[in-house]
């Protein structure tokens, strides 16, 4: 009791004898869990695609009468996306040394990512002109579903890249945020060769 009859305010202070340190940044942990669910999402779609492909009468894939996919042009696009991933890894390592040094490789990564999405957009227009649509058969349905879902992830990734670039320029980006972005972009980049191998080849 105090002199004025009031109870002293009791504050439950944290136990200072035990040092607590965050092992994994929240942004990175959240992104790890998210990327894990996305991997399973794509694994499900690829599984359905493989079974449908194997069940084709006569074992001919793509089915006769369907347009052929631009394998060589997309291989070039695949290289562009892989280089974008390499640039992002470089940006991450530069960021750990000095955030200002990460700007250039970060921009290179973003530009190559935009190139990939735009190139794929032109490819889609060509395929639609040749009659390949979501409703033209299992081939078109799986193509647009799987490749389209990946493209959606790439577009969302570019949006995050733009937002993070602003934070980087303002000096407001922390290491956890950079790690989370790098993990997400590496997921988008490394998923693509698997999809290219399964869907295009």
């Amino acid at each position: 009791m105090d002199g004025d009859g009031q109870q002293p305010l009791r504050v439950d202070a944290p136990d200072m004898s035990m040092e607590q340190r965050q092992v994994v940044p929240n942004a990175l942990l959240g992104t790890m869990i998210f990327v894990g669910t996305e991997i399973m999402f794509f694994a499900g779609m690829i599984s359905a695609f493989l079974i449908s492909k194997a069940s084709t009468p006569g074992g001919i894939w793509p089915p006769p009468g369907q347009p052929r996919l631009p394998v060589e042009a997309t291989a070039l696009n695949t290289v562009a996306l892989l280089l974008s991933g390499v640039a992002m890894v470089v940006a991450y390592h530069q960021f750990k040394k000095s955030p200002s040094k990460a700007t250039a490789p970060f921009l290179v990564s973003a530009v190559l990512g935009v190139f990939f999405v735009v190139f794929q957009g032109f490819e889609w227009v060509g395929l639609l002109d040749h009659g390949l649509t979501m409703s033209s058969g299992p081939f078109g349905a799986f193509f647009f579903l799987i490749v389209g879902t990946h493209a959606l992830h790439a577009v969302i990734g570019l949006g995050i890249l733009a937002k993070v670039f602003v934070l980087l320029r303002q000096g407001a980006l922390n290491l956890g945020g950079m790690q989370a972005l790098t993990l997400y972009w590496i997921f988008v980049v490394l998923l693509w060769p698997i999809l290219y191998w399964q869907v295009y080849l």
Binding site: G36, I39, M40, A43, G44, I46, S47, L50, I51, K53, A54, S55, G59
Partner: peptide, 23 residues
Amino acid sequence: SDDEKGAYIGTTALLSFLPLGLI
């Protein structure tokens, strides 16, 4: 067919072991 069996077995293995590996 053998292709279909391979696809079923392969995708079953993929969807069984991949989540365990991720966790």
